[in-house]
Design a protein around this nucleic acid. Structure first.
Lengths: 216, 216
DNA sequence: CTCGGATTTGAACAGCCAGTCAACCCGCGC
DNA sequence: GCGCGGGTTGACTGGCTGTTCAAATCCGAG
């Protein structure tokens, strides 16, 4: 049947994209071979090119696909939190590579680096990246707006502006943490982000924002 | 003579490193071939491997070599400025990809991205990167300390802490600008950096920090 | 001028890997 | 049970590129 066929094909598509994202995280974009992806799927190399017209297309698709998935997960989790203050804290926690579950976040940030490098020479990926990034800044701005509505945050600079500033700060610090900087540890990154957010947005830092309970 | 030989060899070394850095900027690390570097030097491919034991070593060396060069140039320029306030502004200007001379800064940031990606899987490069990065943060912190001594800046949070915060902010924004984000233009990045620096360090933003004269 | 070692060349080698393809498998509808 | 068509395989190829190497060249010393 067309439906089952179509469904199966869609599954394979996603399966391959997932596998590709994993391999890219493990070996790096430059070292990723079709064979690796095929092995990860338990499938022959030929099949990969049956579903994707070229390795390049597959890799680019995998990059944005994976990042999109992560964003949606994060977004869903944040929406369940009522307090803007806690939303912001959670967003920061989720952004620190290796603070929560070891693997997922590291993977996400590693993929970001690969996207950045590739986007330097791939205009279409550059455009997609901009969309993803704008959405990410916006989610920060939305939290701030929400907090101002509920009165948790005072009025202040434009929320979008703050989103840009905090987003950039998080990006910059995440790179350090991801690369295992000995000075910028995950815990330190969280503290710095919270402190700067407090100063820029204008709320009081809680004395002990226990990070202990966040480690699964 | 040993001396002339040695000197010549050193020149060739640097010549090759420079050429490699250029090629990496143009084609990307992953697409850089030995042949490209040889052509850029007007030399045969074999010679490249006569001076460097492998392509990988050469590439890694080229990355840190070039960044080191840029840092030293920047450092020299900043030291000539007496006012801490202006030092900070100049540092920010120099950090915005494409704000001043089009090429050099773009090159520098593109190389940073390549370093980051490569450092993910090359521990020795990761260590070198940390040194380079720490030095960069430190130069911000030093400016702040200097400004506090001269009274240009008020006392406030730890200078090293501020160096980390501003450094991360600049890193994060520079990535956006480098990738041609339509929202984060070079001019906007400078404004944002200056405004946040003013808020965090505690000085007044000058009304019109004319960016016009900075465009050569 | 001549010798000798460093430098330089370019051709050859070897391994790797994306992409192709003909054959095979398998489940479905008839 | 039979044929059909999409799914799957794995061997093959063609090109590319890092690396090696023997020969050629250059240049300074004696």
């Amino acid at each position: 049947m067309a439906r089952t066929r179509h469904k199966q094909q869609k599954d394979r598509h996603q399966e391959i994209l997932d596998a590709a994202a994993r391999v890219i995280t493990d070996r790096g974009l430059a070292e990723t071979r079709i064979q690796d992806i095929a092995e990860r799927c338990g499938v022959s190399p030929g099949l990969i090119l049956y579903y994707f017209e070229s390795k390049d297309r597959l890799l680019v698709e995998a990059l944005t696909y994976a990042n999109d998935k992560y964003y949606l997960e994060q977004s869903r989790e944040l929406r369940r939190i009522p307090s803007a203050r806690r939303q912001l804290e959670r967003l920061i926690e989720l952004s620190v590579p290796g603070l929560l579950d070891r693997y997922e976040r590291l993977e996400e940030w590693a993929l970001w680096l690969e996207i950045w490098v590739r986007a330097l020479r791939d205009p279409s990926l550059a455009r997609e990246r901009e969309v993803l990034d704008r959405r990410w800044r916006q989610s920060i701005a939305d939290i701030i707006r929400h907090g101002r509505e509920t009165g948790e945050f005072p009025d202040g600079p434009d929320a979008d502006e703050l989103g840009l500033e905090l987003g950039a700060l998080i990006d910059g610090l995440a790179v350090q943490v991801l690369l295992n900087d000995t000075v910028v540890t995950p815990e330190r990154m969280k503290e710095v982000c919270m402190r700067v957010a407090a100063r820029l947005v204008g709320f009081a830092v809680e004395p002990a924002s226990s990070a202990g309970d966040t480690i699964s």
